[in-house]
């Protein structure tokens, strides 16, 4: 019998069969030369098994006692304490007291936590699900996506908390424009998903990634318009440095988000485009890197 790759007929059969890798009934497993499996069946199967990502995220949250009262309360207390610490810090540095700034700080911090948690919990998601990787074939991308979902559901309870501060400190800022902030929130969710997938794959090869990440995330926090507002730095820095500041994905995402929610202003067009472009780039690069590596995970993660 000739090997499939030697005959034209064999190659055609392999081509047809390759699409069937994730189909439920007939499976063909062959070597992947380019590293990427056929993407359309991959994502079709990913969508079909989305219930798994949902359930895994729910179970993780149950396991971490997120569904108990103090588990839930911690999700709010933790960022609030952080906001309080930074507020004290900024007040000392600026030698002035501005309650409205506290609202700005909490809004930025809560949103940044969403991306930060996606990254840090996404990074360890694959390495901590060893047995499942070894025993069940399924699109592995579901694992970091489930971590991103967990990060989003941990972010949700902070939304009403923010609006309490908004009602106290920014009483006069209420407008229909605020609804548009959902756009920037969505870009942050997608951005976080892409980064979760990227760092989850990186963590498999370098297990100390998750130890570096908190520092990286912390520095990123300082570089993003959270402890400072975009209008405060205009004119302070020269052109190239200003561009560099604006290239930071979180500059557009958090900047646009706060403009809409707190300043009753319409963010400049470049913010809308830059936020979406970063989210898309992160998702495409993160997902493709993850998918190209995922078939090695079973031998790397034990």
């Amino acid at each position: 019998m000739t090997a499939p790759s030697d005959s034209g007929e064999g190659r055609a059969r392999v081509g047809r069969a390759r699409d069937a890798e994730f189909e439920p009934v007939y499976h063909y497993y062959g070597p992947h030369r380019a590293g990427l499996p056929p993407l359309i069946p991959y994502f079709r199967e990913l969508w079909r098994r989305r219930a798994f990502a949902t359930e895994m995220s729910r179970a993780t949250m149950r396991g971490a006692n997120t569904s108990t009262f103090f588990g839930q309360a911690w999700l709010i207390i933790n960022p609030l304490l952080l906001a309080a610490v930074y507020y004290v810090l900024v007040t000392i540095i600026r030698r002035e007291h501005d309650p409205a700034f506290f609202a700005h700080l909490t809004l930025g911090l809560f949103a940044f936590q969403l991306v930060g948690t996606s990254i840090t919990s996404g990074a360890t998601s694959v390495t901590s699900s060893g047995k499942l990787l070894l025993n069940t074939p399924f699109p592995r991308l579901l694992i970091p996506l489930s971590a991103a979902r967990t990060a989003f559901f941990r972010f949700l309870p902070t939304v009403p908390v923010y609006f309490v501060f908004h009602a106290i400190f920014l009483t006069d800022v209420w407008s229909p424009k605020m609804l548009l902030s959902v756009y920037f929130l969505a870009t942050m969710v997608v951005f976080g998903m892409g980064l979760a997938a990227f760092f989850a794959a990186l963590q498999v090869y370098f297990r100390d990634t998750s130890s570096f990440l908190p520092f990286f995330v912390r520095i990123w926090l300082y570089l993003s318009p959270i402890l400072w507002a975009p209008e405060q730095i205009i004119g302070r820095f020269s052109g190239p440095i200003m561009t560099l500041i604006q290239v930071n994905p979180m500059y557009s995402m958090i900047g646009g988000y706060t403009e809409l929610l707190q300043n009753d202003a319409f963010p400049p067009t470049y913010m809308w485009i830059s936020a979406a472009a970063w989210a898309l780039a992160s998702a495409v690069i993160g997902f493709l890197y993850f998918i190209s590596r995922e078939r090695e995970f079973a031998v790397r993660v034990v």
Binding site: Y26, G63, K131, N135, P137, R295
Partner: peptide
């Protein structure tokens, strides 16, 4: 079971496979 990719050659499976491999379930 489709967990490890072949380096060369091919595997064809007709039907849904259920695996009980050395480590069992209970990943979490």
């Amino acid at each position: 079971a489709g967990i490890l990719p072949p380096t060369t050659g091919s595997i064809e499976v007709w039907g849904r496979a259920s695996t009980l491999l050395a480590l069992g379930v209970g990943f979490n």
